[in-house]
């Protein structure tokens, strides 16, 4: 059986710099995959390639075996991919409820959308924010609102770029719970540099370093791998 999401030898070059340099990963249905690496490892660039925000210089990206390389992000989203960006990307002038409705209207009628919006807010524990204006919320709340918008349409695959950036400890703990819970129904790929957070949610982890895959293994083995510790400490490692 082919993987749900696959990157085959993806390269993304900016001028002379290869931010992503031949990455090969395969994420199976139902997985909760962590994608980690120190700053500048190419995580976010790879994320943008996977979500259609960047067109890779070379290589292919497949979703359920179908080539989606170079598709614009709206077309990738339509194939059942929920995408959360690093900096919360929200409809600041609208209410939380209306934002959720926008997320749902593409596939659902008005009444069904209202029900699903309520359910998604409930699931993330932010039902009390429904009538608030998004632009006036605190950062951690914004992260949860964006997460709610991403999961509300029930995508098969959810891609999260640093979902806990800027969250308090308590919010991070809550986000970890939420992501573990979401994994019961969705395949999830989480890009993170916070190793503790990854330890609390992921089973399999791919470590990127200088645009390449350094290790890919079960989370506890990866975290005790001396090479991984070295790249996080900035030591030179042969990938």
């Amino acid at each position: 059986m082919s993987a749900l999401l696959e990157a085959r030898d993806v390269v993304m070059r900016f001028g002379g710099v290869a931010a992503v340099d031949g990455v090969r990963i395969a994420v199976e249905q139902g997985e909760l995959r962590g994608l980690i690496g120190p700053n500048g490892a190419g995580k976010s660039t790879l994320f943008k390639c996977l979500t259609g925000q960047l067109r890779p210089t070379a290589g292919r990206i497949l979703l359920r075996g179908k080539d989606i390389t170079g598709l614009p992000s709206f077309a990738v989203a339509r194939l059942g991919v929920g995408i959360k960006t690093q900096v919360p990307s929200l409809f600041d002038g609208l209410s939380v409820q209306e934002g959720l409705m926008i997320a749902l209207r593409r596939q659902h009628g008005e009444r069904a959308a209202r029900g699903l919006a309520g359910a998604a807010l409930e699931r993330l524990g932010i039902a009390d924010l429904a009538d608030r204006t998004v632009g006036l919320l605190a950062h951690g709340q914004r992260q949860l609102v964006e997460l709610a918008m991403v999961v509300a349409p029930e995508p098969d695959l959810i891609l999260l770029d640093e979902p806990t950036a800027g969250m308090s400890l308590e919010e991070t703990r809550r986000a970890a719970e939420v992501i573990r819970d979401l994994n019961r129904r969705h395949t999830i790929v989480v890009v993170e540099h916070d190793m503790q957070f990854i330890r609390s949610i992921a089973r399999t982890v791919t470590v990127l370093h200088q645009g390449r895959v350094l290790v890919e293994d079960e989370v506890s083995r990866v975290l005790s791998d001396p090479r991984v510790r070295d790249v996080y400490l900035g030591r030179q490692v042969a990938a």
Binding site: T51, P72, S73, F74, A77, R78, I83, T85, S89, L90, F91, D92, G93, L94, G99, I102, A103, R106, M149, P153
Partner: peptide
């Protein structure tokens, strides 16, 4: 919604 945030609208499939 697109006026508010075009990138987000596209990430939602519009």
């Amino acid at each position: 919604a697109i006026r508010e945030n075009e990138a987000r609208a596209e990430l939602l499939g519009y």
